[in-house]
């Protein structure tokens, strides 16, 4: 059911990446500035497609919106210590993957309150940490990992070079047998090699 929302009773259908649809109240949806900008005044024919996000994530996001419908106007994030028990449970029961998906969906839907709480939560994970601890939190590769990665890449590049050289030799022989004019032969071989080498490197 879709219609221009003027009352909190109005329900909207939301479509997830799986193609599933589910209901969300107008009041909850209006916390999304993206929704307000796109659909509030013009309405929507059929389900609203938020198909970059899966059903579980969207349901989690709108669960938060439904819960905070009656909360006072948002005026900046609360300190984590001031969060209600419900808020804390809401965050604590998410695993890291879901938490990240919720941040991304909340950011896309531009739900200021939820995005801010999530960001404050991440900032809290970083405070008081040293570099190594921070690297773990934000999942950066360590210097050793970077070094190892670089070595692997160097090996790959060297192997690619070898393969390209071999291929060039083979191509040269093949083209010569077909008695192509020399200039054309060289150009064809070069083009083939470049394509091969590039596709290899991209892998």
């Amino acid at each position: 059911m879709t219609s221009p929302a003027s009352s909190s009773e109005v329900k909207y259908l939301i479509e997830s990446s799986e193609g599933n649809t589910f209901d969300v109240s107008g009041a909850a949806l209006r916390q999304s500035n993206t929704f307000n900008a796109m659909f509030l005044n013009i309405g929507a024919d059929g389900p609203i497609p938020f198909t970059d996000y899966n059903e579980a994530t969207l349901k989690k996001v709108f669960e938060y919106c439904e819960h905070s419908v009656n909360e006072e106007n948002y005026s900046g994030p609360k300190h984590q210590d001031d969060l209600s028990k419900w808020d804390l449970n809401f965050f604590n029961e998410m695993d890291q993957k879901m938490f990240i998906d919720v941040i991304n969906a909340s950011n896309f839907l531009d739900i200021e309150r939820l995005t801010s709480y999530c960001c404050e939560r991440i900032a809290r994970m970083l405070r008081g940490k040293n570099t190594q601890e921070m690297i773990k939190v934000i999942t950066l590769p360590t210097a050793e990992e970077l070094e190892a990665k670089q070595k692997v890449e160097e090996k790959k590049a060297a192997a690619a070079k070898k393969v390209a050289e071999k291929a060039a030799e083979t191509a040269e022989k093949t083209e010569t047998l077909e008695e192509l004019p020399v200039q054309q032969l060289v150009q064809t071989t070069r083009n083939k090699l470049t394509r091969k080498y590039l596709s290899f490197s991209n892998e």
Binding site: N104, C119, L126, M134, I138, T139
Partner: peptide, 28 residues
């Protein structure tokens, strides 16, 4: 959590909650 993969608006919000000292350590 891959901080560098978040949209820049989210990254900026996260940094906005950090004072200078944790930001400096993060920059290391």
């Amino acid at each position: 959590m891959q901080l560098l993969k978040f949209p820049s608006i989210v990254q900026q919000k996260i940094f906005g909650f950090l004072q200078f000292h944790p930001l400096l350590i993060l920059s290391f």
